[in-house]
Amino acid sequence: MGELVAEWLRALSFGGGFNTNVVLCAAILLGVAAGTVGVFSMLRKESLVADAFAHASLAGVAAAFLVRGALTAEGSAPRSMEVLILGAGVSGSLAVGAIGWLTRNTRLTADTATAAVSSASFGLGICLLSIARRAGGAGQAGLDDLIFGSAASMTRADAWTMGILAALTLTITLVASKPLTAIAFSDRYARTTGLRVPAMEALLAALVAAVTLAGMQAVGMLLIVALLVIPPATARLWARRVPPLLALSASIGGLSAWTGTSLSAAAPNAPTGALIVLTASALFVVSLAAAPERGVIAGLLRRARLRRDANAAALRARDARGA
C-alpha cells in the first residue's frame, strides 16, 4: 500500500518517465479543455447533448471496427485507433443532428428527444458491438480501450494527438467565450446583436464533440461526459460570474485528470477514466457540502438561524403582551 502511494506521488510529480509524463500532460490539458467547454453546455442546459453524443459513439466505433476488419487483409490488422474514433465522430454527430431536428420540427421537448435518440443509438451500438465481438480478429482490445478508457494503452503519438486536440479546443473556446456566453444567457438578445446563433450553436456542438473524441481513448466514451459535466457543476457552487466559473471549472477538470491519470499510472490495470471521474466527483461532493452560498451546510445554517430568529421574535411578542 505504501509502495502504491509512493509510486502515485512519483507519477503525480512528473517523475514517472517520459512516456508517462506526455500522457499525463495531455490528460491535464484534456481535463482543462473539458472543464471549459462544459461550462457553456451547462449554461445552455445542454449537458445531456454530450451524453447523447457519447452514447451514439458506440455504434460508430463498432461499425468502423467491422468495416476496418472487412477492408484489411487477414492478419495485417492495423492498430489505427483513428478509424474507430472517426466512426465515433460520425455516429455521434448524426445523433446530435437528429436531436436538433426533432426538437425544432416536432412537438417533442429537447430532453425527450435527447433521451430517445441517446438510448436508441446506444441500443444500435450494443448490437453492432456484439457482431464485432463475434467477428473477432485482431484489435479487439482497441474496442475496450475506447469504451472504458485506458491511458496505459496510449502510445506517445496517441497522447500528442489528444494533447493537441485538447489545446486547440481550449483556445477556440476561450477566444469565443463572449459569444458563447451570449447565446447561453439569451439567444434572443444574442440575435439582436447580429450574432449568428445557429453558427455559434454548431461551434459549441463541435467543441463538445472534439473533447469527447479527444478523451475517448484515455477516459472512455461514457465517462468522458462526466469530465464535461461535473467540473462545471462543482465550480458553479462557488462562482457567481462567468470568468471565475471558467477558471475554476478548468482547474477542477485539470486537477481531476492529473490525480486520476497519475493514480492509474501507479497502479497498472487501474481504470484511468473511472479514477479521473471519481476524483472530480469527490470534489463535487465536498463542494456541495461546503460551498458558502449554494452549499448544503450553509443552507442548513441559514435555515437554523432563521428559525432561531423567528422563535425569538415570537417570544418577544408574547412577553410584550404579557407585560
Binding site: 444567457f185 439569451s186 434572443r188 447580429g194 466559473l245
Partner: peptide, 21 residues
Amino acid sequence: VRDRVAHVPQRESVDWDFPVT
C-alpha cells in the same frame, strides 16, 4: 441599424439563475 435599437425583454424570458451580476 441593429445597434441603434435596444430591446428590453419580458421578465419571464430571462434565465435568472445565470451567473451574471
